[in-house]
């Protein structure tokens, strides 16, 4: 087997192993499928009755934001699973085999991507049931989901990097929660950020979560001319900026996670 095929073939073997694991751990599956459903219903009915955005129903505004949030939460499974596996001897087994070392992280991120996709499908279905609608062409909508998946994949590598640097499930969870909550809430995901006080508004406008949310809103047609969008480059060119973010995340975090993995397992 050559150097190109091996990481792919071995990565697929590892991804299948992870998929089996997920199928057998109801808690993980519940987290990925049930949590988004609860979030959609909670935000749609609780916030939906209190928050109003100009020119469109809140639920249409909300769903792209929920998608982005769910992607960020689900991608944390990658990091969390890695810290759990680090505790067991399974990486020793992998490293004593003539497999491609990169396959472990490739397999982990790919299986988590599939899980993320399942979560998105469920959320979209629930969203449609509570009144979310797509107003663009099927091609654009497909692009919207594609963009979310790319972001999910790239963000998995970010959580993998953090996990391999911290190495314990507890510290990973603490950091992940501490970072992801402000990241999601100081953004335009759930509310119109133009109403925020100045310093928070600037943070929200430049927050990549806002960029991805805005890109998804544009691709699904969940925008309104009555809603004024922030006048910063990553929001005005949200789709391009999102692709740029994804590229940057992959270029930085794939090699970083790979290096940290080697370090974490060879001591």
């Amino acid at each position: 087997m050559n150097a190109v095929i091996m990481p792919v073939a071995d990565g697929w073997t590892i991804a299948k192993r992870n998929a089996l694991k997920i199928r057998r751990s109801p808690d993980m599956l519940g987290g990925v499928v049930m949590l988004p459903v609860v979030l959609v219903l909670l935000f749609a009915y609780v916030f939906g009755s209190a928050i109003h955005v100009p020119g469109m129903p809140y639920r249409e505004f909300l769903l792209p934001g929920i998608f982005v949030q769910a992607v960020i939460m689900s991608a944390q499974i990658t990091g969390y699973t890695l810290t759990l596996d680090l505790r067991k001897g399974i990486f020793d087994r992998f490293r004593s085999l003539p497999m491609a070392p990169s396959a472990v992280l490739i397999g982990q991120t790919v299986s988590d991507l599939l899980m993320n996709l399942a979560g998105l499908v469920v959320m979209a279905a629930v969203g449609l049931a509570v009144g979310w609608r797509v107003h663009t062409s099927p091609a654009e909508a497909a692009l919207g989901f594609g963009l979310l998946m790319l972001f999910a994949y790239a963000f998995s590598w970010v959580t993998a990097t953090v996990a391999l640097a911290l190495r314990t499930p507890e510290s990973f969870n603490n950091i992940a929660t501490m970072v992801s909550f402000p990241l999601v809430f100081v953004s335009n995901a759930f509310l119109d950020s133009s109403g925020l006080p100045a310093p928070l508004r600037v943070v929200a406008e430049w927050n990549p979560v806002s960029t991805f949310t805005q890109a998804a809103r544009e691709l699904f047609g969940n925008t309104s001319s009555a809603l004024k969008t922030a006048d910063v480059w990553p929001i005005r060119h949200a789709v391009a900026a999102s692709l740029l973010w994804i590229a940057v995340l992959l270029v930085v975090f794939v090699p970083l996670a790979t290096r940290l993995y080697k370090k974490a397992v060879s001591s």
């Binding site: 192993r17 089996l20 694991k21 751990s25 067991k88 001897g89 399974i90 990486f91 020793d92 087994r93």
Partner: peptide
């Protein structure tokens, strides 16, 4: 190895 390296869920 000294500690069994098997996957519990499999």
């Amino acid at each position: 190895g000294q500690y069994a390296a098997v996957d519990e869920h499999l």
